[in-house]
């Protein structure tokens, strides 16, 4: 039996499979390893950012700084590499910076008892401003190390490729799933999303968990920034505006409750893939405006919010019935 709390996840998977089947009916070419590989590669940076966002939303918070941190990371890394720093060192520095930035936001949220919305909104402007400060132009980069990374792939049938970026995203999801379901940190995040007050009384360390949580989201945003840099071979401070909203949409369409406490990291992967699939369809069709992605995602988001509300109401009603019937 499917438990009620997993219904949104199951719905996401079913929608994805149905949508893919419909696409494949119209464009049989879409049902190939090549397209599937591209689907993963093209959405890698969004997927990585969405893993961090899933944790934040599960805890009942939100991180609006993600898009800006991606842009900052990409510009930061590009400028460093052009200045002659080895990419590996630049990557490490960028990740340290984005993780520290996230930790600082988490600390602020906890210490000032401010809504995450406000603090990360400030973080969003800060990171974007810092990116502009470094460079307002697109900074193209090329380096042997980067070419090596991009050249790493696992061959799939019919010229498909599981690229380094795709593997990076899948690895991020594996780490996310393990963190969420098999560690105390993950359990604490779910607890926070249920009720921070109860969680505290049950001994969940609020400060540490909040700091770790936003540090993790910052790390994932930084990693997404690196993925984006590799993907575009450039750093650009105007890029990835609003990616945090795409990530939030992926998380919610993936079945996570926007108010926190319920959801699965794996659902987010399907949330990302659904968005990617719609874009892919638009590319195959060739006549549709790319804005259709937004419209479909909007409709899906709305449908999921309604679905979650209905599940909640249904379970409340069942609980009431049980109470009324004495047992």
């Amino acid at each position: 039996m499917i438990r009620a709390r997993n219904l949104p996840f199951v719905a996401t998977v079913v929608i994805f499979l149905l949508a893919y089947a419909l696409c494949a009916l119209q464009f049989p070419n879409m049902l190939s390893f090549r397209v599937a590989g591209n689907l993963l590669t093209d959405n890698a940076f969004l997927g990585i950012a969405a893993v961090g966002m899933t944790f934040v939303i599960l805890s009942g918070g939100i991180d609006l700084s993600v898009g800006s941190v991606i842009a900052f990371t990409s510009v930061f890394v590009a400028v460093l590499i052009r200045a002659g720093v080895h990419p590996a060192l630049a990557f490490a520095l960028a990740l340290a910076l984005s993780t520290g930035f996230g930790a600082l936001m988490g600390l602020t949220i906890h210490a000032l008892k401010m809504p995450a919305f406000v603090v990360t909104l400030a973080g969003m402007f800060l990171a974007r401003g810092a990116a502009f400060l470094i460079s307002t132009d697109s900074v193209p980069i090329s380096h042997d190390f980067l070419r090596t990374l991009k050249g790493l792939y696992i061959s799939l049938p019919d010229k498909g490729r599981l690229t380094f970026l795709a593997m990076l995203m899948l690895a991020a999801f594996v780490i996310g799933v393990v963190l969420a379901h098999r560690t105390r940190f993950g359990a604490n995040v779910y607890a926070l999303g249920g009720s921070s007050q109860s969680a505290e009384l049950m001994g969940v360390p609020l400060r540490r968990t909040t700091v770790q949580l936003y540090a993790f989201s910052g790390f994932m945003a930084g990693l997404a920034g690196l993925a984006y840099t590799l993907y575009t071979s450039a750093g650009y401070s105007l890029a990835t505006v609003g990616v945090e909203l795409d990530a939030i949409a992926a998380v919610v369409v993936g079945g996570t409750l926007l108010t926190g406490g319920a959801g699965l990291v794996l659902g987010t992967l399907f949330g990302v893939l659904i968005q990617g699939l719609i874009q892919m369809y638009i590319v195959f069709d060739g006549t549709l405006s790319s804005w259709w992605t937004k419209i479909v995602v909007g409709l899906l988001l709305f449908a999921f919010i309604v679905l979650q509300r209905l599940i909640l109401l249904a379970s409340e009603r069942r609980a009431a019935m049980r109470a009324a019937h004495g047992g």
Partner: peptide, 24 residues
């Protein structure tokens, strides 16, 4: 009291879950 969104087992063992190699 407890956390309604967690399972019964998670509520009972929150913060002291049995672990092996750091994993619950």
């Amino acid at each position: 009291n407890l956390l309604e969104n967690l399972t019964v087992a998670e509520n009972l063992y929150l913060g002291r879950q049995p672990r092996r190699y750091g994993l619950i």
